[in-house]
Design a protein around this nucleic acid. Structure first.
Lengths: 132, 132
DNA sequence: CAGCATCCCACGCGATACTG
DNA sequence: CAGTATCGCGTGGGATGCTG
């Protein structure tokens, strides 16, 4: 498939010309996709190999890790370095772009940590009020 | 269904006890779900009615808007106020929690705006290098 | 107008076997 | 070890008709 013909009319996306898809949606599609954030987090301490990340993240399949890494590499968040050895060795690492993303990501993490309790409580209040 | 039996082994989620699911995953599951962010954004200027948002967002179905609103209400991001009139009128508005979320969301939006060009360029470079 | 119930298809994603 | 190709299931989500 080429590209989704959908249009997003939100002001969130209309803040720039739509030559490119909405940056937010673009970024959100990446970090919102279940694994990218975990991968980015796994790479935060330093370079990692494929199976290393596979084990570290734990509940990701090879296919999804592979896809996610490729996506992140494609978008310039990480680099992929293959060493022509045998057995093969491939290492992934954050780029400057990837590292710069840790700031807003950190803000999000901090907010989540700070307000998670409130969210959980809101859910419980909701269930109590609506009767499940 | 009760709850996903999946476990996330990432340090991103191990920063607190896992009595609750990882706050980040929890928050990400919400804002990463294609519509929540758009809804939150639509409500930023002030209260909105159902069909108003439906039109404003543009490419969201009734069902998904309904679900998203319910989720956000449940999580304490927004309030739902039904006026016992005929025809019925329902208004949605951000809560304090919802408004507080605009800070990290703003950071993310700013980052996306600032680096979107770099991401697009990285993609083009990737395509050029890998030959599609 | 608000929004839930139903139908249905597309695709996300895990499992697995295969390649280099 | 580091992936890719294939298969199959589960579900996200659009379209739409019905209800209050």
């Amino acid at each position: 498939m080429t590209d989704s013909p959908k249009k997003s009319a939100s002001s969130l996306c209309e803040r720039q010309a739509l030559a490119q898809p909405c940056p937010i949606r673009d970024v959100l599609d990446r970090i919102g996709d279940q694994w990218s954030l975990l991968v980015l987090d796994a790479l935060a301490p330093g370079r990692r190999r494929f199976n290393e990340m596979l084990r570290e993240i734990g509940d990701v399949s090879r296919q999804m890790l592979s896809r996610t890494l490729k996506q992140l590499e494609q978008d310039g968040f990480i680099t992929r370095t293959a060493y022509p050895e045998v057995p093969p060795r491939v290492e992934y690492a954050l780029t400057d772009l990837g590292r710069s993303f840790q700031a807003p990501m950190g803000a999000l993490v901090a907010w989540a940590d700070e307000h998670h309790r409130a969210i959980v409580e809101a859910r419980q209040r909701y269930l109590a009020g609506a009767g499940g």
